[in-house]
Amino acid sequence: MEAFTVHTGTAAPLRRSNVDTDQIIPAEYLKRITRHGFEDGLFSAWRSDPDFVLNQPEYAGVSVLVAGPDFGTGSSREHAVWALQDYGFTVVISSRFADIFRGNSGKAGLLTALVDQETVERLWALIEADPTTAVTVDLEAQTVSAGDLVASFDVDPYVRWRLLQGLDDIGITLQKEDAIATFESSRPAYSPTTIG
């Protein structure tokens, strides 16, 4: 996982609340056998609508999603996070996230920046007025800035630490590799193996 310190990119306004995981990626995409390539399933029901925000040419290449409250409710599917990342999103900003979605995001390295609804409204106004507005998310300082707006955001301290270090769960465990090797050397001789 790459370390996350400061991210700057353009942003898309998603003026909807209660976007659930079925809307982020429908169940039919869950049968796949890969861990990547879920961008085509992202918001799939809305993508056929030419007016949908991600279909607007001026929002091509966005990496920040500014969403309404209660983003990511519904199932625990990690695919919702993967689909957002595969599409190119690095940060989702909202005034309320579903817990499981937020937990899954932290594990996978997608930053969920929690701000007040007023900040969301101001960001929406800015990026709708000018889609080329650069939005900067500073994880060290826990601020989001765009135009003359500077606002602080909330993030779980442990998730923040992991993102700043660029460590996923496996990376964290592998920091204890010595302890694992020591444990392995003390396993009893009769412990079975699957080979031979």
């Binding site: 861990r35 990547h36 396993r187 699957t194």
Partner: peptide
């Protein structure tokens, strides 16, 4: 706690993405 696992059984339904993620992380 970090717990050691003595035996890990794998089948075709829940493993493909795990292997794919290992591959892309070079593990």
């Amino acid at each position: 706690d970090l717990l050691y696992i003595d035996l890990h059984l794998v089948h075709e339904v829940t493993s493909p993405q795990a292997f794919d993620a290992l591959r892309s992380a070079g593990r």
